[in-house]
């Protein structure tokens, strides 16, 4: 889940990233250039750019595919803005830059923001040690995490 894939068939592409998302952005940029795709890049330095980015997303013409590599927090806000603008899931690819993730505890339903590259991952509400799965809910904007004991 740490790199974008080029989704063919869109008329144009919009790529939004921050400093930690520079790596996936660069590899996607290569693909877009190789494919001869029309694209635009926005560099989002910090969270205060949300309003500007939301307006940019919302004013895109039909046929735009949206890519974003941003830190958890800003990324979910952007996702909400894209859904409000009527983007369908197949028109969006998001990658959390950095190692922080929103995780959904399968046992108490609490959502924690945690560093997934530094295990053990622990639920900040019930304290269980969790294993983070690849299954992500768009509704909760979080990855499913289940008690390590269950494996």
């Amino acid at each position: 889940m740490n790199s974008f894939h080029f989704a063919a068939g869109h008329l144009r592409y919009l790529l939004i990233f921050d400093s930690k998302g520079a790596e996936p952005a660069a590899s996607l940029r290569n693909s877009l250039i190789n494919e001869g795709a029309e694209f635009k890049e926005l560099y989002a330095g910090s969270g205060r750019d949300l309003k500007w980015i939301s307006e940019e997303i919302s004013s895109q013409k039909n046929g735009t595919c949206l890519y974003a590599a941003l830190e958890t927090g800003l990324l979910e806000k952007l996702e909400t803005a894209a859904v409000c603008a009527g983007y369908l899931p197949e028109e969006i690819q998001f990658i959390p830059s950095g190692s922080r993730r929103r995780i959904f505890c399968a046992h108490c339903h609490h959502i924690s923001i945690t560093d997934c590259e530094n295990p053990p991952v622990q639920c900040s509400s019930c304290g269980r040690y969790l294993k983070v799965s690849g299954s992500r809910s768009g509704y909760w904007q979080a990855y499913l995490a289940v008690d390590r004991e269950a494996f």
Partner: peptide
């Protein structure tokens, strides 16, 4: 059909 914004 070419004039619309995304979300149409």
């Amino acid at each position: 059909l070419y004039q619309y914004r995304t979300g149409t």
